[in-house]
Amino acid sequence: MSSAHVDHTHGTLPHEPEKATHEGRNKILGFWLFLGGESVLFGTLFATFLALRNQTNEGPTAHELFNMGMTAAATFILLTSSLTSVFAIQAMHRHKLKQLVAWLGITVVLGLGFLGLEIYEFAEYVHKEHFGMTTSAFSSSFYTLVGFHGAHVLFGILWISLLIAQLFKKGLTVVTAPKIYVSAIYWHFIDVVWVFIFTVVYLLGKVG
């Protein structure tokens, strides 16, 4: 950490450094607007999926396809990463840089675990179940919705990794804090979307 920022990590940073500056507060507010837009975007994909989920074109149905064990594992990994992300923000509020970086690191690792499971799942569907993107309206809408969520997870992993690098370079300041806070909000939002996906796509798909 550069000496210019030592002061900030020893008591002169405010309690919630992410909200200490006007720019920081605007960044957070703007991000909520973005999440409103993201909700609409995922809403359209859910709408498409729900409208087409029984159009299997003689390909595999949701009931035949889904493996509850893998979905449960992915869900628990993502839920846990939401908790570690909250711990990162709490460490930030206590101005504990090392803890903050450690919790962000664990969040990234859990995100990678989730993504690995999803890639494995998709590969299995395509190769073993002959369930490709163009198999049926169900498969297209499934891959678009779930894949789009996976792409968000990937983006979150890259984003948080870059923020960790920035923390090493610049330390915890009123400039870096809003970025960390916003990335944590994003990560929780990804988890919220996953709650809808495992309920609507996987569990309701299994029920019929």
């Binding site: 999440l35 409103g36 837009g37 993201e38 909700s39 609409v40 995922f42 809403g43 359209t44 859910f46 709408a47 729900l50």
Partner: peptide, 9 residues
Amino acid sequence: GFFVAFTCV
């Protein structure tokens, strides 16, 4: 956002 999303569904 949720309201518009729900309307879409």
